[in-house]
Design a protein around this nucleic acid. Structure first.
Lengths: 342, 342
DNA sequence: ATTTAGCACTCGGATAACAAGAGTGCTAAC
DNA sequence: GTTAGCACTCTTGTTATCCGAGTGCTAAAT
C-alpha cells in the first residue's frame, strides 16, 4: 500500500510529466507549494516508487517518468477530472449545434472539434449501420443492363451501389424483385439483410422470378457491403505535434494505420458503456504501445450508436480529456436525439 | 544555345540527382562511360551551366544540383521516356481490370496502384460530377418531416442528403414537386441544376405548390452541394519516404493540405489535354515549391472526365513517371469506356 | 584554342574532448 | 524520519579538429 506522501508524489510527477514531457526530478517536485519536503526525501520516495513499478528512469542520472503502471494508478486513483469551464462547454455546444443535414455530419464535426480542443487525434466510430433498419430499397436503371441499387435506412442513411444484371434478366423480373424485397425486408436491421435474403427471400424469389440466382447473388453482394462501420477522423496529424513523434518513419507507419479502417475500428471499439481508458500496451497492439486511447460511447434512445475515441501519447492530459470526452459523449447523444425529435 | 556537351552534362547531372538525391560532382560525371572528359573540363562546363541558371550549388564546395530551370529544360528537351516493360504494363492492366461495381472504385484503385508503382503520392480527380446529367431524383420519407433526397446521374453516381420540410408542407405537395423536378430536369447537367431550378422551375412550382419558397430553398441547397469534384488519394504517406521530407513539421503541413480537397483539386486540375508537368514554383503555391506535379487527363467517349496527378519531389523520376502516367491515363480511359459498353 | 593536370582553398559532416547542468544515491548529521 | 552535503553519472551543448569531396584557378599539354 502506498503512503499518502507517495501518492502525492506520484500524482505530482505524472501531472508534471504530462505537461512538460520531460523526466521529472526531485527538486522540481520539492519546489511545489504543496510539497513540504526536501529533494532528498522526495528522492527516497521516488526510489521506492520505482521499485514498486510506478516510475522508471530513462537513464541513471535523469529524473523519473511514469511507467505504464504509474499512469494506470494515476488514472484509477489519483486524477481529479478538471472541471470544464462553462465557457468551454458553451463553445463545444455551439460548435456541435450547427444545423447539419445529415447525422453523419454531426459525427464528423464532433471528431473535428474534439481534436481541435485536445491536439490529439480523434477517431469516431459512426452510427452503427446495423442498429438501423431498412426503410426502402430502390433500383434505378441507368443505362442498358446497369442500375443503381439504393438502400435507405430509417435513420436516414443512404447507401448505393451500381449493379449489373445480364441481358437475360427482364425488366419485369427486376421490378418484381424490388417489390418483394421492399415487402419482406422493410424494418429489418441492416445487419440481418443478407441472412434474411438467403433464408427467406430466396424461396419466394424462386417462385416468381426466372434467373433468380443471378439477382440473388448480386443483391447479396450489395447487402454484404453494408455491414461495416464507418470511421471518422479529426486532426489526423495532430498527433505529430507530440514530441514523442519526432521520427518520420514512426509517423509514417501510424499514418498508414489510419487508412486501415477495419483495424482502427477494432482498436477503438469499446464494449462497455461509458468511459474507457487504455494505456500503452493495454491496447494489445504493438504500434500503439506508447499511445493511449480514451473512448466513450454515445447513444440514441438509450441504445448504443457509436464510440468516440481519442488517441494521444500515454502522457495524455487525462484529467482534461476525461471531462471533455464525458461532455462530448453526452452532448452528441443530446444532439442526435434532438435531430430525431425535431 | 547550349552545346552538345553541355546538354549531355546537364542530362547526366539531372539523371544522377534524381536517383541519389545528392549534389553531383564533376568526377562522378566524368567517370561515366559515355563521358570522355576529365573532371576539370566538366567543371568548366558546370560553371557555365550554373551561370546560365540550369544548375546551382548548395554551398561553395559541394557538387551541383539542378535548378528549377534545369529540371524544366531536362523535361522539355533531354529526357528519354523510359519504356515500360511489357511485364509492367501487364501488371498495371491486370490490377486495374478488377471487376468493380462502381466507376468510383476504378478511380480509387488507379490512385492506389499509381502510388505503389512510384512511391510518390497520387491524386486523382474524380469523374466530374458536372459532366454527367441528372437521371432521376427521388425523395424518400424517413420519419415525420424528414426525407432523403436522392440524386442519380446518368453515369451511375448517386448523391444523397437528408432534407427537412416543415410540417406545413403537405405530402401531396412534396410528391408534386418531385414529379415536376423529374419532368423538367432529367438530362440536365448537374452543374446547371441550381440555375435551372431558380430560373425555370421556380415559376412552375409557384403555380402548383403552396409554400414553394421553403422547398425551393431546401432543394437549392442540395443542388449547390453537388457541384464539387471528388479527390482520391493513393499513398498519402509515400511522399514522406523521400529524403527531402525528413522534417516532421514539413510533413505535417503537407499532410494537412491533403485534407483540403478544394485546394488540392485546384492545384492538380489541368486545363490541357494530355500530360502536364509543373515543377516547383510553377505550381504557384508556396508549400509546393520543392515539389513537382505531373498530371494527365482521362476521358470517356472523347470527353474530359478527370485528371490523374502525381505529387513528388522536384527531383522526380520524370522518365518513368511520364511513361507511367501516359499508360495509366490511356488504360483508365479504356477501362471506363469498357464499363460503359459492357 | 581546348583540354587537362595540379594544387590551394572551402565547406560540411563526423568525431573527440570538454564543460555545464541536472539529477541521483549514499552517508552522516540533524 | 528528514535533510544537507557531496561524489558520481549521464545528457546536452560547444568547440576544436580532421577528413574528404568538391570547386576554381593557373599553367602546362595537346
Amino acid at each position: 500500500m502506498l503512503t499518502e506522501r507517495q501518492l502525492a508524489i506520484l500524482k505530482a510527477i505524472v501531472d508534471d510529466y504530462i505537461v512538460h514531457a520531460e523526466p521529472v526530478g526531485s527538486r522540481t517536485i520539492s519546489k511545489r507549494n504543496d510539497m513540504a519536503f526536501s529533494p532528498a526525501t522526495i528522492r527516497n520516495e521516488m526510489s521506492d516508487l520505482e521499485e514498486l513499478g510506478f516510475l522508471e528512469k530513462p537513464h541513471s542520472s535523469a529524473g523519473r517518468i511514469p511507467s505504464q503502471k504509474g499512469y494506470r494508478y494515476y488514472v484509477d486513483h489519483l486524477l481529479s477530472p478538471s472541471k470544464l469551464s462553462s465557457r468551454d462547454m458553451a463553445d463545444i455546444h455551439s460548435r456541435l449545434a450547427l444545423q447539419f443535414r445529415e447525422s453523419e455530419q454531426v459525427i464528423q464535426q464532433s471528431a473535428k472539434v474534439l481534436s481541435q480542443l485536445t491536439s490529439y487525434t480523434s477517431i469516431v466510430l459512426g452510427p452503427e449501420v446495423f442498429e438501423s433498419r431498412l426503410s426502402q430499397i430502390q433500383l434505378i436503371p441507368i443505362s442498358g443492363d446497369q442500375a443503381v441499387m439504393i438502400i435507405v435506412t430509417d435513420s436516414g442513411h443512404v447507401e448505393n451501389q451500381t449493379v449489373h444484371f445480364p441481358e437475360s434478366v427482364s425488366a419485369q423480373d427486376v421490378e418484381r424483385v424490388v417489390n418483394i424485397l421492399n415487402d419482406r425486408l422493410r424494418g429489418v436491421p441492416i445487419y440481418r439483410l443478407q441472412q434474411k435474403l438467403s433464408q427467406e427471400i430466396a424461396d419466394v424469389l424462386k417462385k416468381y422470378v426466372t434467373k433468380y440466382e443471378t439477382m440473388l447473388h448480386t443483391i447479396g453482394q450489395v447487402f454484404a457491403d453494408q455491414q461495416q462501420e464507418k470511421v471518422y477522423y479529426g486532426g489526423k496529424t495532430n498527433i505529430l505535434s507530440q514530441p514523442e513523434f519526432h521520427d518520420v518513419d514512426r509517423v509514417r507507419s501510424i499514418l498508414n494505420l489510419f487508412e486501415e479502417d477495419a483495424l482502427i475500428s477494432r482498436l477503438i471499439r469499446s464494449e462497455d458503456e461509458g468511459l474507457t481508458i487504455r494505456i500503452g500496451a493495454e491496447n494489445d497492439f504493438e504500434p500503439f504501445s506508447d499511445l493511449s486511447i480514451v473512448t466513450a460511447t454515445y447513444t440514441l434512445e438509450g441504445k448504443y450508436v457509436g464510440t468516440i475515441g481519442l488517441l494521444g501519447p500515454t502522457r495524455m492530459e487525462y484529467p482534461r480529456v476525461i471531462s471533455l470526452m464525458d461532455y462530448f459523449a453526452k452532448d452528441m447523444t443530446q444532439m442526435l436525439s434532438r435531430r430525431q425529435s425535431d
